[in-house]
Each structure stands twice: as C-alpha cells, then as structure tokens.
Simulated assay, not measured.
Amino acid sequence: MKYLLVREDDEGEEELWGRCANVEGLFVDPVPPPREVLTFRGCTPAGPLREAVSRPGETTALLGNGYVEASDDTQVGWWELVDAVVLAHHPSRYDPSLVDVLVGAGVNGAGGGGFTRSGPSRFELFLGNNVSAGQCLRVDGLLASRQAPAKIPMELIGCEPTERLLSALRGPRKWERDWAELWALDRTGQVMAHPAVGLGIDGARPSVFGGTLIDITLTDGGANRPSPAARPVWESWYQGVPTVPNQWAPYSSQGRSAWLRLALQARRPRRPDLSGGVHHLDGRFVTDVPGLHCAMGEALAGPGGYFGWGWDAFRDCLCGGFGLTAPFTLVWHDADIARQAPAAAVFASDGLLSYVEEIVQILEDAGVTVVLA
C-alpha cells in the first residue's frame, strides 16, 4: 500500500481512514483561470515591473506568474496572476510621476473573495519568488466576482477501508465539504508528501485488484496536486531519500521545484544547530532558481537536503532550526554559471540585485564567508 487516507478527528488527532495501492489523478496541472485585463492605476513600479515600463519604445513585456495583495486597516486579500503580460503603460491620470499599467493575465481570486474596498486601500504586485514589483493606488477589474475553478476528480485504487471510511461511503453527502490528507509513502514507509483531498465521494465499486478492496472516486482531488512534471521526481524519491549528489540536475524547473517540496517534507529530525566548517556548493547545474536552492540544500544539508526553496525561506533557514548556522564558509564552485543563467535575471527583494547577488548578500549579512570559485 503506497498511500494512506488520513483525517483529523474532532480532537485534532490523526485518524486513518484507509490504505490504497495506487492513485489516478494525483499528478495534474490545474485548469488555468480565464484571461482578463486589469488596469493598475497610480503605480510606483519596482523590480521587474520598473524594468518593463522603462524600456524605451516598448510598451509590452512579460511578467510571468505572481499575485496582487490588497490591504487596508482591517482586511487583506490576494489574487493569483498566471502568465501576466504588460499590454500598455502611460503616465497616470492621478499623478504624472506615477504610471498606469494595463496587464493581461489569468486571474485566480480564491484568496480575495471576501475583500471589499470600503476606504483607502493598498495594492502591491509581487512577481516570481515573492519579489515586490511596486505599489498602486487601485487596480480596475480586480475586485470582480469570479467562478471557482473546476474541480478535478481523483481515483483511489485498491483501497482497504477502515470502518470510518466505510461509514463515509454509506453517507457521502455528509462529507462533501470536508477534507483529508493523502499520505504518499516511499518504499520504507516514510511519508513523502501529504496533499489535501476533498472527501466528496462520487462513487465506489469493487476494486480491479479483487478481494475485499474497493476503488473510490473523489469529486475533488485538491488544488495543490503536483504537476505531471513531478511524477519522475516522486518515482525517484519513492526509493528513499537521495544519497547521491545532483540527482535533481536532469529535471526541468517544475521538476526541481517538486524536488524541493519533497526535500522539505523529508527534512531530518531537529537537532542542535552546528556552525563552522567549509561547505562546497556544486554550481555546475545551477541554471534556474529551483536549481540554485537544490544545490544549496545539498551543500548545507547533504544529498536530498533542504535549506529553503526561495530567498525568503532561505533567509529563515539561516536563522536556525535547520541544522546549520553561521559562521561557516561556503565555497560556490562554477558560480559564473548561475550568474549567466536565468537565475541571474530574476530580480530580488529590492529590485536592484540579481537573484544570485541577493543570495550572496543574505549569506554575508548572516555572517557566512562566501567564496565564489
């Protein structure tokens, strides 16, 4: 059995609902949200947005994925932007020193549905790895009502149900709005990941595996399922936590991001932080941001190790609790590859440094000696 269906009971204790041999529909790409046009008015652009609106003679630019955060004194909301593109920009009608920016993007408003503008509000655009791209006075079209994304079902195959799951199958309507976790196990029985799945049940039948096992269709397999690009990564980790360096290197950026999520789940038990020593980062395969953090995790925590998945998480890891704290020395071999790769083009928190430069600065500010070799 490779999967466990687990739910918290009323006392917050984890309760086993069933064991399953396999799952169909675990690896899916989410249905992209419909494209919309938003007008960001009265903006003070920063980072990648400032670069986009500063190019002479160009009105369009690619921004990629990100989100808009709206806040006032009493509430906060956020809207995910998928494949955002600058369509036009011009001086703002509010103040010629500010900019109005027309942006096309897929908009997912699941986090902003309850936000209502009842007074002065702040709107901030974040891109890439939570990089601020500036603040605006308002965003026309952002607060429109939107339909929830379509649910994608999931098949639990070859399940050995507990009495709790059998009870739910007898009264499925009761559980339509409830959630559980699907624990994916490696071959040693360790939990690799535990995505949330809906408990709405669309049907159950005798399993193709025979015997007393059953196959179950869940109406909603959850919004945070791994991408199909993650499947070979999961197959690799199914054999156990990696023991050989650079096993992440052949994967795409999506695969490397999946690697980081599994590395976080597999993080070693907490122990007192160590400091000192010389650690070596193999930079030969650092060609994107996820690759940088895969290599950093291995340099500081060994093969399959985790030490942050983005610059903010990386900063948190340096504060302690992840096995290593400054002072220590990091020798970054083949650093020029990261400088020349797409990782170097990602703007960091203040929009002035490249992503690689920002990571080096974070290390040095924390008391780490960085040697770029």
Results as ranks from 00 to 15, higher is better:
Val286Asp: 13
Pro303Phe: 12
Cys319Ile: 02
Gln340Cys: 07
Leu300Arg: 02
Gly283Lys: 09
Leu324Asn: 03
Leu330Pro: 00
Gly323Asp: 12
Cys317Trp: 05
Ala299Val: 11
Leu292Ser: 09
Arg284Asn: 08
Trp311Gly: 02
Gly305Phe: 10
Glu298Trp: 12
Gly283Ala: 08
Arg339Asn: 11
Phe328His: 01
Phe322Trp: 09
Cys319Met: 08
Ala335Gln: 03
Ala313Ile: 02
His333Gln: 08
Thr325Gln: 11
Val331Met: 02
Arg284His: 12
Ala313Ser: 11
Pro269Gln: 12
Asp312Pro: 00
Gly297Asp: 03
Gly277Met: 05
Ala326Gln: 05
Pro269Val: 05
Leu324Gln: 09
Gln340Trp: 08
Phe307Glu: 01
Pro303Arg: 15
Phe328Thr: 00
Ala341Ile: 03
Pro342Gln: 15
Arg284Leu: 01
Leu300Cys: 07
Glu298Leu: 13
Ile337Asp: 00
Gly276Glu: 10
Val331Cys: 05
Ile337Trp: 03
Pro327Cys: 11
Asp288Ser: 10
Thr287Asn: 09
Pro303Ile: 07
Asp273Gln: 06
Ala341Trp: 09
Arg315Trp: 08
Gly276Tyr: 06
Phe322Ile: 01
Asp334Tyr: 10
Ser275Val: 03
Asp282Glu: 14
Gly320His: 11
His279Val: 07
His280Lys: 06
Pro303Gln: 13
Gly310Cys: 11
Phe307Val: 07
Val289Thr: 06
Asp282Thr: 02
Ala299Pro: 01
Pro272Cys: 07
Arg315Gln: 08
Ala326Gly: 04
Asp334Arg: 14
Arg270Glu: 13
Leu318Tyr: 10
Leu292Ala: 15
Thr325Val: 15
Ala326Thr: 02
Cys319Glu: 15
Phe285Met: 06
Thr329Val: 15
Met296Arg: 04
Gly310Ala: 09
Pro269Phe: 08
Val278Leu: 12
Gly277His: 04
Val331Glu: 05
Leu318Met: 09
Pro272Lys: 08
Ile337Ala: 06
Gly302Cys: 10
Gly291Asp: 10
Ile337Ser: 06
Asp336Gln: 10
Leu274Glu: 15
Asp316Pro: 00
Trp309Ser: 13
Ala338Gly: 09
Cys294Asn: 14
Ile337Pro: 06
Leu281Pro: 01
Gly277Asn: 03
Arg339Ser: 11
Arg270Tyr: 13
Gly276Phe: 15
Pro272Met: 11
Gly291Thr: 04
Leu274Ser: 14
Ala301Pro: 01
Gly323Met: 05
